[in-house]
Simulated assay, not measured.
Amino acid sequence: MMPPVVTVVARSGTGKTTLLEKLIAELKRRGYRVAAIKHDAHSFSIDHEGKDSWRLTRAGADTMLIASPQQIAMVRQNPEGVEPPLAECIAAYCGDVDIVLTEGFKRSEMPKIEVHRKARGEPLLCRGETHDPTLIAVASDVRLELDVPCFDLDDPAAVADFLEERFLR
């Protein structure tokens, strides 16, 4: 069975990662197993040039794992320009968690929490020019009158309460 998935969206530099850090810590404190998936529209590498793992990947390994008593990491090559569907990634790697929190999948159909900062002065992504029906809440540094709950950006416990009530009970 797939765990519930909620994505945190916002414009770049608004504080998605910061909110997720606090939210993950709060959910872990409550005893939940949490997976995090970060979307990157650009090419990235977790491998470092010259390391054995980098050499194996560079040699052509389609999948390369690094395993230790503490953790496991995987580098898997995608076909050129083909990003795997998020649901496929969750099914393959997140079956043993209680909830999956993702960052940046703003075009997805999964439930979304949008981060908003007044200083950015920009309209909401999900309630601006378009009305995204998958928006379930907003975390903001100012009070907003919306058709979804609006939480204080500095109160990750309230956001965790909301997720717990909606997805984890």
Results as ranks from 00 to 15, higher is better:
163 L>H: 04
63 T>Y: 00
94 C>P: 09
24 I>N: 06
145 E>F: 08
56 L>M: 11
12 S>N: 02
129 E>Y: 07
66 I>A: 04
58 R>N: 09
144 L>K: 02
2 M>V: 06
46 I>D: 09
90 I>K: 13
94 C>T: 07
162 F>P: 11
15 G>M: 10
31 G>D: 13
10 A>W: 11
65 L>F: 10
10 A>H: 10
40 D>E: 14
168 L>A: 01
24 I>F: 07
106 K>D: 11
5 V>P: 14
132 D>R: 07
16 K>H: 00
66 I>E: 03
127 R>F: 07
129 E>C: 02
146 L>H: 01
76 R>Q: 14
2 M>P: 12
21 E>T: 05
87 A>C: 09
118 K>H: 10
165 E>N: 13
107 R>G: 11
69 P>F: 08
80 E>D: 15
59 A>C: 08
29 R>A: 14
119 A>R: 04
135 L>W: 06
72 I>M: 14
54 W>M: 10
83 E>W: 01
25 A>Q: 01
114 E>S: 03
17 T>E: 04
11 R>I: 03
16 K>P: 00
130 T>A: 14
147 D>M: 12
68 S>V: 02
137 A>S: 05
50 G>P: 07
125 L>V: 11
42 H>M: 07
116 H>N: 12
121 G>Q: 02
25 A>H: 01
15 G>N: 10
138 V>E: 07
131 H>P: 03
17 T>R: 01
135 L>C: 07
164 E>A: 14
45 S>D: 12
102 T>M: 09
41 A>S: 15
105 F>N: 07
40 D>C: 06
51 K>R: 13
43 S>L: 14
6 V>P: 02
71 Q>V: 01
105 F>R: 03
117 R>E: 13
47 D>N: 04
95 G>I: 05
67 A>R: 05
69 P>L: 10
120 R>W: 08
65 L>M: 15
112 K>T: 13
85 P>K: 02
162 F>Q: 05
97 V>P: 00
125 L>T: 05
16 K>D: 00
130 T>I: 13
130 T>K: 15
120 R>C: 06
34 V>S: 00
112 K>F: 09
5 V>T: 14
9 V>S: 13
36 A>Y: 13
127 R>G: 06
55 R>S: 04
80 E>W: 07
122 E>H: 06
5 V>F: 15
120 R>M: 11
27 L>S: 06
7 T>P: 13
91 A>M: 09
137 A>M: 05
52 D>E: 15
68 S>E: 09
132 D>G: 06
155 D>F: 02
114 E>P: 03
128 G>I: 04
30 R>M: 13
116 H>D: 12
58 R>T: 09
71 Q>E: 01
82 V>S: 01
71 Q>D: 01
132 D>N: 14
145 E>A: 06
107 R>A: 15
112 K>L: 06
62 D>Q: 02
44 F>V: 05
103 E>Y: 07
85 P>H: 04
52 D>C: 15
50 G>L: 08
101 L>P: 01
38 K>Y: 10
120 R>D: 10
82 V>H: 01
53 S>A: 13
18 T>P: 00
81 G>D: 08
84 P>H: 04
85 P>G: 00
105 F>I: 11
23 L>V: 01
49 E>N: 12
88 E>L: 03
20 L>I: 15
90 I>V: 15
109 E>C: 00
45 S>C: 13
119 A>D: 04
159 V>R: 01
20 L>A: 10
58 R>L: 09
68 S>Q: 03
79 P>V: 10
153 L>C: 05
